[in-house]
């Protein structure tokens, strides 16, 4: 119960900080918009090829701009001293991990919702039914969990390194390939209005679970007592 309360508190304070500055969500959003614009120069979005690669484009945009949000989880003005305070407080690392994953997940999901909306407008995507949109949302949420769960661990790892923003991406993106491949595959179905197969959902879900477990176990190793001194 106590753990749950501190979990909620940690998320709450992340959102308070974000509400004050709005820097994370805004920079993610702007970056996503720019990426969507640039894609139209690479591939004519209305051509046959453009329609086929849409799922990949969506996920590439999410991956590139979501990395900004993950990067900000432990970086920014005063983030290090805030973290040290949390580490000294009687909060378990597991609670801290899940709180960070949740708040980062929510930031990224806000960005993804707006980006998806803009994407549908710009690229003329229409969902035939509410079920089709629902399938899309499910797959995006599942994919984002996998993306954020390892990301938070790596973000804690690279937070003190000079130039760690680039290093985070270098470490994160290769690890993201299973989730990315599975999510793109499922998104293709969702965009075409087809039913998702059980296999697709189970695969993305399984990757999420593996990454959450690995992220949680290794997060405790990364933020040891040495960091709190």
């Amino acid at each position: 119960m106590k753990a749950l309360r501190s979990y909620a508190r940690l998320i709450y304070w992340d959102w308070v900080r974000e509400a004050k500055r709005l820097d994370t969500i805004l920079s993610m959003l702007l970056f996503a918009m720019i990426t969507l614009m640039i894609f139209s120069f690479a591939i004519d979005p209305m051509s046959e090829t453009g329609v086929r690669v849409r799922a990949g484009m969506i996920w590439l945009t999410f991956l590139l701009s979501g990395a900004i949000g993950i990067d900000r989880a432990f970086r920014g003005d005063g983030a290090e001293s805030v973290l040290q305070g949390i580490l000294l407080a009687p909060v378990s690392r597991v609670t801290l991990y899940y709180a960070k994953v949740t708040s980062t997940f929510l930031f990224v999901v806000v960005m993804e919702a707006i980006t998806l909306f803009v994407f549908c407008l710009l690229y003329d995507v229409e969902f035939e039914s509410a079920a089709a949109l629902g399938r899309m949302i499910v797959i995006i949420l599942l994919g984002t969990i996998g993306f954020v769960s390892v990301g938070v661990t790596l973000s804690a790892m690279t937070r003190t390194i000079k130039g760690g923003e680039v290093l985070l991406r270098i470490l994160l993106f290769p690890l993201m390939i299973p989730v990315f491949a599975a999510a793109v595959d499922a998104t293709k179905f969702a965009l075409a209005g087809d039913e998702l197969t059980m296999k697709q959902l189970v695969l993305v879900g399984a990757f999420d679970l593996v990454y959450l477990a690995a992220g949680q176990i290794l997060f405790e190793v990364i933020l040891s007592d040495y960091d709190a001194s």
Partner: peptide, 14 residues
Amino acid sequence: AVFGIIAFLNLPIV
């Protein structure tokens, strides 16, 4: 050490 473990676990998955 942490990244070495993650990377190895990830290889078969990839």
